[in-house]
């Protein structure tokens, strides 16, 4: 080769994965070099069922889409194809780094094993695992997190796990629990989650007015930038607003105690926002 190996290794960290694939075809030396080098850093990678639509049940596993930067790979969800792809992956780089890596999981043990095999040599700053539906998948997620102990974690659960398992999760940068039926998240569990995780998105949380104010006080006293989204029942919202001194007659700039109403029914008819010390609260979609 015309350039020293150390330079070519550096070069191979600066090119796209698609270019690595083409370089494999250039000559034997480069095919070997591609297999023996790190692919470098990419902003985003994903493993997701192709044509996946959130919240639609009974989607067959079908075709899997894998993205490394701008390169997209598609493969049928069979054990043979998964094995072949793992071997192929080992021929296109030794390792790769991502700012964010998103895994949308499906209810298939073959798929879950495949994902762990594919990503085990990756470096990932933020690991997003979406669409967890069962306790078994939660166990799997914990194993993956153990594989990436220094990453930040984002997770979306479509079921409410057993409380002990839920509270045993490592600290999450973002935890979403939504789309489950006939259950609500009790106040005690909510406050535990609020204490454990930075950003939350929770469905059907039941809070008394005092607990509502306590939650706002906890968030206000936290120096970190945090976002907590709660889906609560309408009657609960009205009572909690009243506890904060906000009624239909409240005008902008006024409120109860340290609460300052910023937007009473302005941009949209069902939106109110108010400020309590460092915490800003938006309430929308209530009737």
């Amino acid at each position: 080769l015309a350039l020293p190996n150390v330079i070519l290794r550096d070069l191979l960290k600066k090119i796209e994965v698609k270019d690595r694939l083409r370089l494999r075809l250039s000559c034997r030396s480069f095919e070997k070099l591609v297999a023996e080098t790190n692919a470098g850093f990419f902003l985003v990678g994903t493993i997701t069922p192709a044509n996946y639509t959130p919240y639609i049940e009974d989607q067959s596993l079908g075709v899997i889409s894998i993205q490394f930067g701008s390169a997209e790979f598609k493969l049928d969800s069979t054990e043979d194809k998964f094995d072949q792809f793992v071997q192929f992956r080992e021929r296109i780089f030794t390792g790769i780094s991502f700012d964010v890596f998103v895994i949308t999981i499906r209810n298939s043990s073959i798929f879950l094993n495949f994902v762990r095999n594919i990503i085990h040599k990756f470096q990932i700053k933020e690991l997003h695992i979406a669409n967890l539906e069962t306790e078994a998948q939660l166990e799997w997620m914990l194993q993956v997190m153990a594989d990436f102990p220094t990453s930040k974690y984002h997770s979306t659960l479509s079921f409410l796990p057993e409380t002990a398992k839920l509270l045993a999760l490592p600290q999450m940068e973002y935890l979403e629990i939504s789309e489950f039926d006939f259950q609500h998240i009790p106040a005690e569990l909510f406050f535990n989650l609020l204490h454990l995780h930075t950003n939350l998105h929770l469905a059907d949380v039941v809070l008394t007015s005092d607990e509502w104010i306590r939650a706002i006080q906890i968030l206000s006293s936290d120096d970190r930038l945090r976002r907590v989204t709660l889906w609560v029942r309408g009657s609960n919202v009205v009572a909690n607003q009243a506890a904060c001194g906000i009624t239909e007659a409240t005008e902008g700039g006024h409120g109860g105690g340290e609460i300052e109403v910023v937007t009473p029914h302005s941009d949209s008819e069902d939106m109110v926002s108010f400020r309590y010390r460092k915490c800003k609260v938006f309430i929308d979609h209530f009737y």
Partner: peptide, 28 residues
């Protein structure tokens, strides 16, 4: 790429076909 990196192709046609087949995982 061969021209820029001053490379000579030393694959057989069969070897190239095999690598192209593998690269076909990447559809775009």
């Amino acid at each position: 790429m061969r021209e820029i990196l001053q490379l000579e192709c030393d694959f057989t046609e069969e070897e190239l076909a095999e690598i192209r087949k593998e690269n076909a995982w990447c559809e775009n």
